[in-house]
């Protein structure tokens, strides 16, 4: 028998098992952490000059948070749990009848239409941040609920899901181009008008 075998071959049969073990380990342990939060837009430092727009009181939904975290909504004490419902009722009111998709009570003493409806949020300097975020979340939630309703009606899917897809850079651009007008349309149906005035100091 000739001696031409060379080095003995390494048995690589178990390599696959080891690799799979590794793969499974990483699949289980890794969590891709994406930051999430509430997006807000601050008003510009210098307000535009021609601001003498008169806003009717009935088109403003005032939310006041005091330093112990209690809410004063439209001059009435309200618990945070009810805030979303109240905000939806206000935004969806459609008092002047120009909003044909609104399903509210068309109460003449509440907002004219979603275009004009403004939510004004005021807080105290001593308010807890967590409370403030809860209120913000509920107000954004009110807008999202209404937008979801309209998106379901028009496109048969949720607005929040569409917007998330649209904003995600991993979505193929063809799909994003398709979503863009739809997202925009829904946003125009219920524009987010959330104003935050200067905080009271006392």
């Amino acid at each position: 028998m000739p001696r031409r075998k060379g080095a003995p071959e390494v048995n690589a049969g178990s390599m696959a098992d080891i690799a799979f073990l590794l793969l499974i380990f990483f699949l289980v342990t890794t969590t891709i952490e994406t930051d999430a939060g509430l997006d807000r837009m601050l008003p510009p430092a210098e307000p535009p000059e021609d601001v003498d727009v008169v806003i009717k009181q009935k088109n403003i939904f005032t939310v006041n948070i005091n330093k112990s975290g209690q809410l004063l909504v439209e001059e009435e004490i309200m618990s945070i749990q009810n805030l979303r419902k109240a905000a939806i009722a206000f935004l969806d009111n459609g008092g002047d009848g120009s909003c044909n998709y609104c399903k509210g009570r068309r109460d003449a003493s509440s907002s004219d239409n979603p275009e004009k409806a403004i939510i004004s949020l005021k807080n105290d300097r001593e308010t807890k941040y967590a409370t403030y975020i809860t209120v913000q979340n509920e107000l954004v939630g009110a807008y999202n609920d209404l937008r979801n309703r309209e998106a379901q009606r028009l496109f048969g899917r949720d607005f929040t899901e569409m917007e998330g897809k649209f904003l995600n850079p991993e979505t193929p651009s063809a799909e994003r181009d398709d979503l863009k007008p739809k997202v925009k349309r829904i946003q125009e149906l219920f524009p987010q008008k959330l104003s935050e005035a200067e905080t009271s100091t006392n």
């Binding site: 601050l42 510009p44 430092a45 001593e126 975020i133 913000q136």
Partner: peptide, 24 residues
């Protein structure tokens, strides 16, 4: 407390960085 956040927001407005995200 919100006072701190309000101060930060005021400064961000002054330097014209208006897009913010409250991380949660």
């Amino acid at each position: 407390k919100m006072g701190v956040i309000v101060d930060i927001k005021k400064q961000l407005r002054a330097i014209n960085l208006l897009k913010i995200n409250y991380s949660t």
